[in-house]
Design a protein around this nucleic acid. Structure first.
Lengths: 226, 226
DNA sequence: TCGTTATCAATAGTAATACTATTATTTCCG
DNA sequence: CGGAAATAATAGTATTACTATTGATAACGA
C-alpha cells in the first residue's frame, strides 16, 4: 500500500544513507527505534546490535541502511534541521518585517520542542532531546571535511544563511551575521542541556523561558548597536 | 630526583584519575602521548591500545591511571580550564576597572592558543585544538550527572562564575550573566572549529581575529543595552 | 643484610562492538 | 509460473574496552 498520508517528505542527502530508510518498513523502524534508543541511552552506549534487538531485526540488516552509527546520527540531524527549516519558513511567511521574522525564527530555534507528529515514525520531542545532547557530535568529528564535501551539512548551513539574511535586512552593516546565528543555534541547545544538568552555567528566571528570552535580547541588542 | 622546576601544579580533582599521572614518569608520558594522539586522530579513533603503543607501554598500564578514555578527556579538559583560569587571574590582577578585566578575560578565552610551555609534558597548542574539537564531549555524555556530583566540572564552573562577576560589576541588573559567559566559552571553540571546517557558518573579516572581536562586541553591547 | 610488603607494570585473557562476506528468502515482473 | 532483483538473516572476523592475575622492583623495618 502506498503512502496514504499527505505528509511532507524531507530532502535528505542520499550520501548519508546506503538505502533510503523511508523506502521500507524496516527502514522506518530503524529510524523510529534509533530515536527511542538514542534518547534513552545516549550516542556512546547506543549500538546497532541494541537497535536491532529493539526493533526485532538483525545488526547486518541495519548496516544495509547506514554505514555506521555516526551516519545514522547525521540522518537524524539532517532530518531535524530540514524539519526546523520547514517550520521556520512556514511561520515566517507573509510576516510584515524582518524583525518580526527574526524573532519568530529565534523563538522556534531556541524553544523547547514538545510534539508535532509531522511523520508517523519520528517523535519530534525525543529527536529534539537527541539533537540537544548529541547534535554537535554530528560535525565535531574527524571526518567533517569528507562529509562536508558531500554536502551533508547543507540543510544546517542553509538555515544559518536564511536567518542571517533577516539579520542583514535589519542592519545591513552588521559584520558577523553567520557567527551570530550559528552561535545561537548551537548555544540554545547547550543551554537547554546545562539547564538540566549543569544549572550553575545558566540563569534561572522564574515563570518564563530564559533561553529564548536571553538569545532574542542578545541578538537584537547586538545588531542594533553595531 | 625530585621536581626541580618551580612550575605550578594545577589542582585536578582526584575523582578523575585512578592514579595521579603527575606522580610518575609513565603518568606524564600518558598525558603527553594522549595530547599528541588525540590531536592527531580525534577522540573516536583514539584508543588506549594506540596510546600504549605510542608511548611504548601497555594498555593495562594506562588503565591503572584512568578508568576509560572519557575520564582521560576529562583530565585534559580540567587541566585546560585550570590553566585558563590561572592565566585570566594573572592577566586581570591589578587592572583598574571591570570592563578592562572582562575584555582581557574574553580575549584569553576566545583567542587562539599557540604556546605557553607551563609544564613540560603538555603542549598547550595541541591541547587547545583538542578542547576546541572534543571539549563539549566532556559533558555531553550520559554520565554528566554522576560526574558532576563528584565536582569534576568545578574548574569550568568557577571560571564561568568569575567572568560573570565582571559582567555584574559593569551592569548589576543584567539578568543572564552565566548564560552569556557559557555561551561565549563554548561558542568561541565552535567558531574556531567552523572557521577551519565549515566556513559558511562564520564570517571572515580580513586582517583581524574575527572570533575575539565578535564575542567582545557581542558581550559588551548586550550588557550595556540591557 | 635479609625478608616482608607495598607499589607498579606487563601478560594474558574475556566480553562487547564494529563491520563484512555469504547465503537464504521474498517480491516482483514478464 | 520461472527467473531476476531486492531484501534480510546467518555466521563469521577484527578491533575495542576492560579485568584478573602474575611478575618485577622499590621501600622499609628488624
Amino acid at each position: 500500500m502506498e503512502n496514504l498520508l499527505p505528509h511532507l517528505r524531507f530532502n535528505i542527502n542520499p550520501a548519508i544513507y546506503l538505502k533510503d530508510p523511508v523506502s521500507s518498513e524496516l527502514g522506518r523502524r530503524i529510524i523510529q527505534g534509533s530515536v527511542e534508543l538514542m534518547d534513552d541511552m545516549g550516542l556512546e552506549v547506543f549500538s546497532f546490535r541494541k537497535l536491532a534487538t529493539h526493533i526485532g531485526s538483525t545488526e547486518a540488516s541495519v548496516y544495509r541502511y547506514f554505514e555506521n552509527k555516526h551516519m545514522l546520527l547525521l540522518y537524524l540531524s539532517a532530518w531535524y534541521w530540514q524539519w526546523m527549516g520547514y517550520r521556520i519558513a512556514f511561520a515566517t511567511a507573509n510576516l510584515p518585517d524582518a524583525e518580526t521574522k527574526l524573532r519568530v525564527g529565534l523563538r522556534l530555534i531556541t524553544e523547547e520542542v514538545t510534539e508535532d507528529r509531522m511523520v508517523q515514525h519520528i517523535h519530534e520531542g525525543k529527536l529534539h532531546r537527541i539533537i540537544v545532547a548529541e547534535g554537535s557530535k554530528a560535525y565535531m568529528h574527524k571526518n567533517v571535511d569528507t562529509i562536508n564535501a558531500e554536502g551533508v551539512y547543507l540543510g544546517y548551513k542553509n538555515l544559518v544563511e536564511r536567518l542571517s539574511e533577516f539579520v542583514l535586512e535589519i542592519n545591513p552593516n552588521y559584520p558577523y551575521p553567520h557567527m551570530l546565528i550559528s552561535t545561537v543555534m548551537e548555544g540554545a541547545h547547550h543551554q537547554r542541556f546545562f539547564a538540566e544538568h549543569l544549572p550553575r552555567l545558566t540563569d534561572v528566571v522564574d515563570g518564563q523561558d530564559a533561553v529564548t528570552t536571553f538569545y532574542t535580547e542578545l541578538v537584537l541588542s547586538t545588531i542594533q548597536t553595531a
